[in-house]
Nucleic acid binder design. Structure first.
Lengths: 124, 124, 124, 124
DNA sequence: GTGGTCTAGACCACC
DNA sequence: GTGGTCTAGACCACT
């Protein structure tokens, strides 16, 4: 389920956060559901438990998951809203990237094609 | 001309690189032209000269600028092509971001609006 | 009667202890009276019996309740005094919190209002 | 300056957070000022650097301090507001404690005396 | 079994 | 020198 690239320059704990957010968005993990325990995921990915814990506790701080000590981590009921809102916050960043690309002479059609691809994939 | 945000988590030398690339793309600095010296820029931004040097030498490695010992740094003739090509390489990254946003339920119109804005600004 | 919040970061057994102490203070449960059995309470709250047992045995150690093997747990005669004394011990902690709030610029009136509210509610 | 009680049940990193917030509130450390480096504080308190880092990065997340990699941690300009707001959020918790104490028969005068003490100390 | 705190030590990036 | 990531392993509290 989870897949980590240890060579990537984006930290492992960030990769875990991103993937879990993705799983929440696409419904692989539903609100209220329990997520893999720190230990089990650390074994599965052959990663140190502390790394998993860091990812989980940051998601906890953001209100996306919550911990029940002795039982495990669970997805918050309003997790979907929070994750979506976070993505909205990245729109300005997107605008900056687009402006760069426009400046670099990347044709508008190239961009639009990518947009369409992203949104038709979602329709399925 | 250059502006650095010390609070940002993107390294200062990266910020310098990005800004210089932008200046090359929008024609503020033309190919063959000399760019600010390491010392002058370090004074202007009150930044350690080593930080400027790191940015410049990476741009040098990429073939975007070149150094003439004793005179300074100059923009390569084919700098524009190289910078543009680098932006093209970021298209796949863009696709990934777009897919995320589609999944997050951000309306396609919102994206298209941003695309149009970026490209009309460029028309000027 | 008892209500447990599994999402809270305060342990369940602590919540049970606090609630039972509250019931003793406000007279819902009188000294000498029997309290819910470990098994029945565990069923009612859908909680592991060990959790209930831990709460009860700590209250036992404190001299607030006592167990009669084969019959159940009962409230000690002097339970009220012991619980009250425990609350007195928290006064210093309260002072520290108040000092913090004073430092944070919370107006004294705001505090006094809360004090009055707590004590008028008690008059009822 | 900082003092940690390793025996306390409140985690060391929490103690560090609390003390730093206190220093910000009482003006010992002003907004914009640099705070002790992770390493220096770890040496001074004979505590592992990771423990300091955990405290600092949580304060970073809360927007109370910010890090400039390679330079150190600094107090945010609006740190005072954020810390004060956090204390306000604890008012409801205070109300609950007060209600408990009222129920326990602690005389109102005892409470008022503590309130006055906290607020006259602040007047100095 | 679960999460959570802490330690000791390594390595990297940035300044 | 600074912060930041990651590992390995210990110990505690909760269920």
């Amino acid at each position: 389920m989870f897949q980590i690239d240890a060579m990537s320059r984006t930290p492992m704990y960030e990769q875990i956060k991103e993937q879990l957010e993705k799983f929440i968005l696409n419904g692989t993990i539903a609100p209220g559901e329990q997520i893999p325990s720190v230990r089990s995921l650390s074994l599965q990915l052959s990663i140190n438990p502390n790394t998993i814990l860091k990812a989980y506790s940051e998601l906890d701080t953001q209100g996306i998951i919550y911990s029940v000590p002795g039982k495990g981590y669970f997805v918050c009921e309003n997790a979907l809203d929070i994750v979506s809102a976070a993505k909205y916050d990245k729109l300005d960043e997107l605008s900056a990237v687009l402006a760069d690309m426009a400046l670099a002479g990347i044709p508008k059609e190239e961009i639009l094609q990518r947009v369409n691809k992203a949104y038709t994939k979602h329709d399925r």
